[in-house]
Write a protein that binds this DNA or RNA. Structure first.
Lengths: 225, 225
DNA sequence: GGATCGCTGCACGGAATCTTCACGAATGAG
DNA sequence: CTCATTCGTGAAGATTCCGTGCAGCGATCC
């Protein structure tokens, strides 16, 4: 059983999808336009989103991007048949799977089930849990805990922490960090990294990120279990 | 030298690429369609794949995804010029680099070389360790141990030690050292190197760096393990 | 619209580090 | 053995680097 948001403007199809998914044991909420979808996903925090790319007055891709911004959510796109461009862009924007219209309900539920399984597996996967000392980071759910307590990290702070934790103890220069986390090509002469390091330290503890004078930063190597 | 699979349906281009990569010292295999590519990559386990996204009758992206499924392989995509969409999707699907057509062979080999280097460095020896006597240096983490005890080296001291350890026993003049470690063009008449050698010796032991009177310094050649 | 939140970069002080100087010890050629 | 070089050493500026407070700015939320 999972929480699912369906974004579809054709009422008939939307209802059909919802019915089918409900009979498959899921909780389903409907949205029929872009803003509604973004709002709904933000408030319900679903486990999966079924998103029609052809939405009136609002770019489905933009919806997808906004949905993914805070917290990555598995997305299945519904696209017009043969519209390869949409498909490509959709995947780029963060969709995980797609269905070309018309599709059968059997096919839809199969994809939903497969995607849920995939996601579940990946977040149960120890690979997606990063640890050091008393810090535990769930990459898939973008959550960090300190002594089991949830820590509220901003998107940038989270990405920074994950980047450093991915190679425990390895020292990264500010340039590397700006390139990998921010996507900057040249961020020399900026204290931006420092500011965010400070923010992370304040929230997860000062010793999680080690300063290497004259070089950059590295995560602590604390036990992985 | 590396094992490379090239997936390209235009025979002329495929042959040209293969020839160039072979002359660069690599083993090259060709595939001209999607299924062939997947099969070939599965059986040869190449170190790198050069993949044209525009394949007949089979989605290049799908190929990329299937290739990456079992075992992540570095992929360089070939895309139509200016097709930003392809680029985005390709990167999303797991490509590591891309070239827009038309490209020069020089450019291709450069990218191939760069990617191989990147991969080799990051996976082949994840912990780049240098040793001599009872000293052990972890280059990535910028840490040195003496009898297992962590030794606190400053950035310059560390770089100096690594530079000498990289070619055990090879004598370097002060000029060479200043050039390589400090980036100076001319550091004649400076005691800077001496000071840092002293600092390193004090911390890791005097016999790790040998003085060659009238010439310069060299690291000890002590056992490598 | 107004308030809040997050991102960014500057200025500043303090800390860590680098560089140089001076002088005695060591070296090696003749 | 003598002497000119070269090297090691300690300490003291000079320099660089980092942590922090803060303010501007845009985006978002209400």
């Amino acid at each position: 059983m999972a929480e699912i948001v369906v974004v579809e403007d054709e009422a008939e199809l939307a209802v059909a999808i919802a019915a089918r998914l409900r009979s498959d044991g899921h909780n389903v909420c409907l949205a029929e336009d872009g803003p509604g979808a973004v709002r709904l996903v933000g408030s319900r925090r679903p486990d999966l989103v079924v998103l029609d790319l052809m939405l009136p007055g609002f770019d489905g891709l933009e919806v997808c991007r906004q949905i993914q911004r805070d917290r990555p959510v598995p997305v299945i796109m519904l696209t017009a048949r043969g519209s390869e461009t949409d498909l490509l862009v959709g995947l780029a924007v963060g969709a995980d799977d797609y269905l070309s219209k018309p599709f059968s309900m059997r096919e839809l539920t199969a994809r939903v089930r497969a995607l849920l399984r995939r996601v579940e597996r990946s977040s149960a996967d120890p690979d997606h849990m990063l640890r050091t000392g008393d810090i535990e980071v769930d990459v898939a759910r973008r959550r960090a805990r300190r002594d089991g307590e949830l820590v509220g990290l901003t998107a940038t702070e989270f990405d920074l922490l994950v980047y450093l934790l991915l190679s425990p103890g390895v020292v990264r220069t500010r340039g590397e960090i700006l390139a990998e986390v921010w996507g900057y090509r040249d961020g020399s002469g900026s204290r931006t990294v420092d500011s965010h390091v400070r923010a992370v330290r304040r929230k997860v503890g000062a010793d999680v990120i080690r300063t290497v004078h004259g070089v950059g930063y590295a995560s602590a190597e604390g036990g992985r279990g």
